[in-house]
Design a protein around this nucleic acid. Structure first.
Lengths: 244, 244
DNA sequence: CCAAAAGTGTTTTTAATACACCCATGG
DNA sequence: CCATGGGTGTATTAAAAACACTTTTGG
C-alpha cells in the first residue's frame, strides 16, 4: 500500500455473479436481460455496483437477490476473480469482481419486476453476452469443474438431502462425462468426512429406493471458511488427452 | 451490471503482491517497510494504488518494480483475489486486489531509494504485517502449495534452466516436506509436456553432474493464458491427516 | 414376473512408494 | 579411492477402472 501523495484515482466497482445449477442433467447458468444501455436488450450476468460501506460478497448477494426476486439465496458463493478496469465498459473504466454461486435449482422471478428479467440457460446454449461476461463465464466453468474434484462442493448443487445418484448426476453434468454408478457410489460414500447417512430413504421412484445423504458437518462451508474440507484422495474427473 | 441511476460510488483500488521465492531451501516472501502512515514503520506487502487507465496486472508489475528497483520482473504473476473494501484501511474503504508472484531469487534494492525498503523474509519468520496482509499472505501460501501440484509452475521459482534436484528443492521448500529424490526424478521427467532436456549438464558441483532442463514449450505461461498445461496425473504433495 | 435402479463383491490394471544399486564427477 | 550427489531398475502396496451379481422397489 502506497504513499502516493496526490489523491488516488477512484474507480466504480461492480460485482457479477455466475450462478450455476443443474437442471435435467444439464449445467445451467443464470442470465438477465439488460433493460438499459449499454448493451440494452443483451443477456448478461446478474450484478451491479458495489455501494459505499458494502463488502464484495454482501454486494453480490444483494444484487442477486434484487435481480432474481429470491431473498434467501441457496447454495455456495465464492469469489472468482477481478477483471478490468481498463476497456471493459463503454461508459469508462469499471472494475468488476466476479463471483461463483453453486446452487440447487431455484425458481427465478418469471417476469421482471422493476429489475431485469432473469432466467436459466443451459451452458451449451448461452447466447452472446454483454461486456466481458463470456470470458468470466468461461473462467467460472473451469473453476466449477476443478472445485468438484478437490472439494465437497458438488453437494452445493443438491438440496439439503440427496441420493448418491443425484450427486453423481451433478458431477456428470458439470464435467460433461459419464461416471460408473458403482465406482462413484463407493468413492463418494467411502471418502471420509464427505457424506453423512440420514437413515432415510427415497420412495416413489422407479427401482429400488435409495438412501438419503447430507454433507458431513466437517464438509459444510461456514462463514469465513469458504470450503473447509478437502477431498483426499480427490474424486478424479476423467481426463481425455495428455497434458498440454 | 447495473442500471443504478444515481452515480455509483467510487473506490480507491490498490494492488498488493505476494512475491515468493526459494532461498537456501526455504520459502521467502518479499516485504517492504512502510515509510508513511498508516502503519508507518511496519512491514507490509509491496503494492500501491491503481492509476487511472491502468489494468490490475500492469499496476502490480509497476508497483513491484518501483519498490524493488527491478525493472524487468522475473517469474510468474497471477491474480490471487480481492479483499475489502470494508474496514481494512484506517483511511477509509479501499479495495485491494492481491497478486501472487512466483519467482527465482532476485536481488532487491538494498537501501531504499525514494521507495520503501524491500527485503526477503523466510515465511516462517514473518513479523506482524500492516493492514490485512497476514491473511492475504496465508491465502497466497495455500495457493502456491496447490499450484505446484496441478500446474508446472514449480519451475517458475527456478531460472531458465535448472536441474531436477533444484526443482525438487522448490517443492520441498514450498510444501515443507522431504521428497524421495529418485521417485521425484522419475515423476518429473516422466510427466509428458512438463520438462525438456537441454542436453547440457551442470559442472563444478560435488557429485555426478546433473542434466539441465527447461520448461517444455507447452507448459510455459503466455500472456493471456496464465498457466496452460495441467500436470496429469498431479505431482502429489504428501498429505498428513485425513480429510476434514 | 419383469424392468429399473440401488448397492456389494471381485478381478484387472495402473500408479505410487520404498529401496537396492550403479554412474560420474571432485577432492 | 572415496565421498557425494545423479540416475535407473524392481519389488511392494494401494487405488482406480471394469464389470458380474444381488437387492428392492413399481408396474
Amino acid at each position: 500500500m502506497p504513499e502516493s501523495h496526490p489523491a488516488p484515482h477512484r474507480f466504480p466497482v461492480t460485482v457479477d455473479v455466475v450462478a450455476l445449477t443443474v437442471r435435467d442433467g444439464e449445467l445451467n447458468v443464470l442470465l438477465i436481460t439488460r433493460l438499459i444501455e449499454p448493451f440494452k436488450g443483451k443477456p448478461a450476468l446478474p450484478g451491479g455496483f458495489v455501494l459505499a460501506g458494502e463488502d464484495l460478497q454482501e454486494a453480490a448477494v444483494r444484487e442477486l437477490a434484487e435481480e432474481t426476486g429470491v431473498e434467501r439465496l441457496p447454495g455456495y458463493l465464492e469469489q472468482l476473480g477481478s477483471y478490468g478496469p481498463k476497456g471493459r465498459d463503454p461508459r469508462g473504466d469499471v472494475l468488476t469482481v466476479a463471483h461463483l454461486l453453486l446452487a440447487p435449482d431455484f425458481p427465478v422471478l418469471a417476469a421482471g419486476s422493476d429489475a431485469e428479467h432473469a432466467a436459466w440457460y443451459p451452458v451449451t446454449e448461452v447466447p452472446e453476452l454483454a461486456f466481458d461476461h463470456a470470458r468470466i463465464l468461461d473462467d467460472a466453468l473451469e473453476r466449477a469443474k476443478s472445485k468438484l474434484e478437490y472439494s465437497p462442493l458438488g453437494a452445493a448443487f443438491c438440496g439439503e438431502e440427496f441420493t448418491i445418484a443425484q450427486l453423481r448426476a451433478v458431477y456428470e453434468a458439470v464435467w460433461g462425462t459419464r461416471l460408473d454408478p458403482r465406482n462413484f457410489h463407493r468413492k463418494a460414500t467411502g471418502t471420509p468426512g464427505f457424506l453423512e447417512d440420514t437413515g432415510r430413504m427415497t420412495t416413489g421412484d422407479a427401482g429400488r429406493p435409495a438412501a438419503l445423504f447430507r454433507l458431513a458437518p466437517e464438509s459444510r462451508p461456514t462463514a469465513g471458511h469458504p470450503a473447509r474440507a478437502v477431498l483426499n484422495p480427490p474424486l478424479m474427473r476423467p481426463r481425455n488427452g495428455a497434458a498440454g
